[in-house]
Design a protein around this nucleic acid. Structure first.
Lengths: 154, 154
DNA sequence: TGCAGTTGGTTTCAAATGTAACTATAAAGA
DNA sequence: TCTTTATAGTTACATTTGAAACCAACTGCA
């Protein structure tokens, strides 16, 4: 028969990845474990999704942002932001009103209720981060920050 | 009126998180960027999802695993693995047959076609990893591995 | 003006994912 | 052996997510 099967030549190895040493994989596992741990905290307490919390966090930091700006700052896409905001506004955690110079643009802020949640969740998140950092020595922490900066190209 | 509003006392700051310096957030962004970059490669070429590729990668490394073992090794849940396998078997990339000592258990292997894909994708993935590591000095790479080991508790 | 292109944001539809229930086989104990 | 319990894997259903289409408002420019 034509088109003979191309069996792997005996001399050539397949060289499979070793996932447990593969950096992208390790990052993924670590990141998911950490983020999910934090998310469990506030999901249980406030029925808040991770995207919703991120939106709240950025609104705590910068008041009066538009949805677009929230999307930019959270690296989430605008559809996700739109949905998160719909729930947050509905739940009375974020206020939204129209910008007077541009009727498409919304002006977003945490409400009192939103701030109250923020003031509980933010310290919890920080504690989780601290628990993680506690696994490292001072020297390792310094390197980690430097390495992240480099990996993220700044 | 009763139930007076509890406005934040003037002296107390809300202390919002600075996401751009918050470790869990940075990890998440970095991990997503990297993994998505790799996934784009093989999705375009082979219409392969990230979960499918992970299953293939682990089967390349360990032949004859059961679905359960694949799930354990990829940190994916068994439903995700089951679905990925269904597609992979359907596409002729993985072979599945029943273990003779245990009729519930499947014995999984890459087919020729599966290996062929593996042998293209694995080097691409490695190249991506290398591109990432190239941003670091030798010293930083060493620290990174050490730090990841620590953060993952081993 | 008024039309073309852009931008902010939402909606719609399909695909991906998670949870729980289910089937079939195996193992353990009375 | 018969019954219970555990395990491998799939199916069903509900929820989440993403891509593209969409609408409304703004901008630039003839």
């Amino acid at each position: 028969m034509s088109n003979p099967r191309k069996a792997t030549p005996p001399g050539i190895k397949h060289a499979p990845l070793e996932l447990e040493h593969f950096l992208p994989y390790r990052l993924s596992i670590l990141s998911n474990t950490v983020s999910q741990g934090i998310a469990d905290d506030y999901q249980r307490l406030y029925d808040l999704s991770m995207t919703e919390w991120r939106v709240m966090a950025v609104l705590a930091r910068f008041e009066g942002l538009s949805a677009r700006e929230v999307a930019d700052r959270t690296a989430m896409d605008k559809v996700a932001v739109s949905r998160a905001l719909a729930r947050l506004v509905e739940a009375g955690r974020v206020s939204r009103h129209m910008a007077d110079n541009d009727k498409r643009r919304s002006v977003l802020d945490l409400t009192e209720a939103g701030w109250a949640i923020h003031d509980v969740v933010a310290p919890m998140a920080r504690a989780r981060e601290q628990a993680l950092l506690d696994k490292l020595s001072e020297e390792e922490r310094t390197w980690l920050v430097r390495i992240l900066d480099r990996l993220q190209d700044r």
